[in-house]
């Protein structure tokens, strides 16, 4: 009876959302995993052949999967740190009340609210052979014709579009830093950098963790910008995991294979997130 009472409250808080989540997300997720074990036939009622782990073996042996994974990895590595650093930097500059503050907040948030398709087109145009970037820098670079220069353009878009998002979360978190601690630290004679390190960072540490984990997930799941800026060209060199997966599934209708790639990516992201969660937890203890 005691047990029941103890768990009744959390159960009631969690049940409505969790039920919805289980039915509309987890159940389809299990179906997607099941798909990856078949040569899955898309049409209702068609018989799919069970293939066991064949799709996974095929994915691991597919050089294009590895190429696209390395592109997603590069994107993640070059977009996550700048988004955290710049997002936090802007949030620190904007956290105090001032007349200009709401105005600046909106300006920095504007890229977040514009649609991915539209800004991808815009950046494609900025990085075109005769676009604004070459024009401004006096260069003659075919940015989107080569794997690495194209990744520069794609990453630039990712950072530009993402700063406002992390800024928002850091702004919210900075409201929670107790003013008393900052005052105390000032009295102790700590400079701004010292205060930032000893007071602010520990206070917003869970938020740093949240932002980092979310950005890593988002970085490895990059899709729309690549699809619209290069479409994987030239010859698939700029494919990322999801553009490659999308083509397998929705163009070649090879859903078993597409699902296997998606599941592998999910496992990788999950492992990375678990490592990060542990890292951030340990760091707090220290």
């Amino acid at each position: 009876m005691d047990q029941v009472r103890r768990y009744l409250a959390p159960a009631l808080f969690i049940a409505p959302g969790m039920l919805l989540y289980l039915v509309f997300i987890v159940y389809p997720m299990l179906q997607a995993v099941a798909m990856s074990l078949f040569d899955w036939q898309v049409v209702a009622g068609a018989v799919s052949v069970f293939r066991g782990l064949d799709n996974y073996a095929r994915a691991l042996a597919d050089p294009r999967v590895w190429l696209s994974l390395s592109n997603s990895g590069v994107y993640m590595l070059f977009t996550v740190p700048p988004q955290i650093a710049l997002g936090l930097g802007v949030a620190l500059l904007l956290k105090d009340k001032s007349p200009a503050q709401p105005f600046f907040r909106v300006l920095y948030y504007l890229p977040v609210v514009t649609s991915w398709v539209v800004v991808s087109l815009l950046f494609k145009y900025l990085f075109a052979d005769k676009g604004l970037i070459n024009w401004g820098l006096g260069l003659q670079v075919s940015w989107l014709s080569d794997r690495w220069t194209a990744m520069v353009a794609i990453c630039a878009l990712g950072v530009w579009k993402g700063i406002g998002w992390s800024m928002m979360i850091f702004l919210a978190a900075l409201q929670g830093v107790p003013q008393a601690l900052i005052e105390a630290s000032k009295i102790d004679g700590a400079g701004p950098w010292m205060r930032f390190r000893t007071v602010t960072i520990p206070a917003i540490w869970p938020t740093v963790a949240f932002v980092t984990i979310m950005l890593v997930i988002g970085g490895l799941n990059v899709f729309t910008s690549v699809q619209n800026m290069t479409g994987g060209a030239p010859g698939g060199d700029t494919d990322v995991v999801l553009t490659y997966m999308y083509r397998q599934a929705f163009e070649f209708l090879d859903f078993g294979y597409g699902s296997a790639i998606a599941v592998l990516l999910t496992l990788l992201v999950f492992a990375l997130s678990a490592i990060q969660l542990r890292f951030f937890r340990n760091e707090t203890m220290a």
Binding site: F127, A128, D129, M229
Partner: peptide
Amino acid sequence: PNLIIGNSGAT
């Protein structure tokens, strides 16, 4: 032009 190999930035 390199448009043919998929340079989406070419004219």
